[in-house]
C-alpha cells in the first residue's frame, strides 16, 4: 500500500517546487511580497498551531512574541550592526526565552485565565515598546536592515523565508505524527486522563510553548526585514487575533488546515478590496461562523463534502463459518 502514502508526499513536493519557482512565474513584485508575508505568518502559526491546535492552550497574545523578535532583530542588526544571521538566531532565542518567562506562570492557569494572561502579555509588550523609546524608537519606529547577498532582492528574501518556513513545517509535522503529538492531543482533549497515563502535562505544554516562542521570534525578525521599517502600530492586538483565527478556521489538530487558513486569510483582504475595509470585523465574523457551524474547522467541512460526493468504499467482511472446527467444538461440548 505504498502508493497511498506516496501520493500526498508527491503532492507536497509538487507544491514546494511550484512555490520555489514563484519568482520566475509571478505576475509582479507585489505577489512575491504577498507570498513572503504568508511565509512569515506561517512560520509563527506553525509554532502556535502546536500550542493551540494540538495542545489546546488558547494563546491570543502571540503578537507580543512577534514584536519582541522584530524589535530584537531591528536593534541588533540595525543599530549594533550584528550580522543578520546571528541577529536572526538571537531573535529566535529571545522569543523562546520570553515564551518561557510567559509560560512558566501562565500555563498553570485554566483556559480563560491563560487566554487573558497572553492577551495581557501582548498589551504589556505594546506598552513597553512605547515606554522604552530610547531602545525601540518609541512611536516613530525603527528601520530594519535586510539580509546580505544573494537574499537582498525581494525574490531572494522570499526564497529565504520559504526555506525557513519549509524547515519549520517539517519540524512541526515530525512533532505532530510521533508520540509527542499524540500526547499533546491527549492533553487538549482530557488533561486529567493524560496525566494519569504518565504524560508530563506541564512540561509538555511548556516545551511546545517555548518552541512557539522561538518560531514567533524568527517570524518577527523575518517580517521586520521584509517590511524594512517597523512601528508600534504594526503589532496591534488584532494581529494576534488573526493568527489565532487562522488556526481555528483551518481546523485544530492538523497542519495542512492552518497552513491553508494562513494563506487564504492573508491573501483574501489583499485581493478583495471591500474585505480590507472591514478588516478585523471580517475575521470576527468568520471566527463566529466557524465556531458555531463547523467547530472542527473548514478542513473538516471539505472532508465531509468530499465523502458525500465520493463515498469511501467500506468493504464489508464476509465471515465464512469454519464447519470442521465448529463440529469439533460441538463434539467437545457434548463429551463430558
Amino acid at each position: 500500500m505504498s502508493g497511498t502514502s506516496l501520493r500526498p508526499m508527491a503532492g507536497s513536493v509538487g507544491v514546494l517546487v511550484a512555490l520555489a519557482t514563484l519568482p520566475w512565474w509571478a505576475g509582479d513584485q507585489y505577489q512575491i511580497h504577498l507570498a513572503a508575508l504568508i511565509a512569515a505568518w506561517w512560520i509563527l502559526v506553525a509554532g502556535l498551531n502546536l500550542v493551540v491546535g494540538f495542545g489546546g492552550q488558547l494563546s491570543i497574545g502571540h503578537v507580543g512574541l512577534l514584536a519582541i523578535g522584530a524589535y530584537a532583530f531591528a536593534i541588533l542588526a540595525g543599530r549594533h550592526e550584528w550580522s543578520p544571521w546571528i541577529a536572526l538566531a538571537a531573535s529566535g532565542g529571545l522569543g523562546g526565552m520570553c515564551g518561557l518567562l510567559l509560560g512558566l506562570p501562565s500555563l498553570r492557569l485554566p483556559g480563560f485565565y491563560f487566554a487573558m494572561a497572553t492577551m495581557a502579555f501582548a498589551l504589556i509588550v505594546a506598552e513597553l515598546v512605547l515606554a522604552l523609546g530610547d531602545l525601540t524608537g518609541g512611536g516613530v519606529g525603527l528601520s530594519v536592515p535586510g539580509f546580505p547577498e544573494p537574499f537582498e532582492s525581494p525574490a531572494g528574501h522570499y526564497l529565504l523565508m520559504l526555506g525557513i518556513a519549509t524547515m519549520i513545517t517539517w519540524c512541526a509535522w515530525n512533532v505532530a505524527r510521533f508520540p509527542w503529538g499524540r500526547a499533546l492531543v491527549a492533553i487538549r482533549d482530557n488533561p486529567v486522563a493524560a496525566e494519569s497515563v504518565g504524560v508530563p502535562v506541564f512540561r509538555m505544554k511548556l516545551a511546545v510553548f517555548v518552541a512557539s516562542g522561538v518560531t514567533a521570534g524568527l517570524a518577527g525578525a523575518l517580517f521586520a526585514s521584509l517590511q524594512s521599517y517597523i512601528t508600534p502600530d504594526t503589532f496591534v492586538f488584532e494581529l494576534g487575533l488573526f493568527f489565532f483565527v487562522c488556526i481555528i478556521i483551518g481546523g485544530r489538530g492538523s497542519i495542512a488546515g492552518p497552513l491553508a487558513g494562513t494563506a487564504i486569510l492573508t491573501a483574501l483582504p489583499e485581493l478583495v478590496a471591500p474585505l480590507a475595509k472591514l478588516g478585523t470585523l471580517f475575521y470576527g465574523l468568520l471566527l463566529l461562523a466557524v465556531v458555531l457551524l463547523v467547530p472542527e474547522g473548514i478542513g473538516r467541512l471539505f472532508q465531509v463534502i468530499l465523502e458525500r460526493v465520493r463515498p469511501r468504499e467500506t468493504a464489508s467482511p464476509v465471515l465464512e463459518p469454519d464447519a470442521a472446527r465448529l463440529a469439533a467444538a460441538i463434539r467437545r461440548q457434548e463429551r463430558p
Binding site: 491570543i60 480563560f112 467547530p295
Partner: peptide, 30 residues
C-alpha cells in the same frame, strides 16, 4: 443567544471562549 446557548449545549470546554471572543471582536470593530 449567539455565543453561549448553542455552544453550552455542545459542552466543549473551550468553545465559549472562542465564540465570545469572536462576538467581542465583531462588536468592537462594528
Amino acid at each position: 443567544v449567539i455565543a453561549i446557548r448553542r455552544v453550552l449545549a455542545r459542552s466543549d470546554e473551550h468553545l465559549w471562549l472562542l465564540s465570545t471572543l469572536a462576538l467581542a471582536t465583531i462588536v468592537q470593530q462594528g
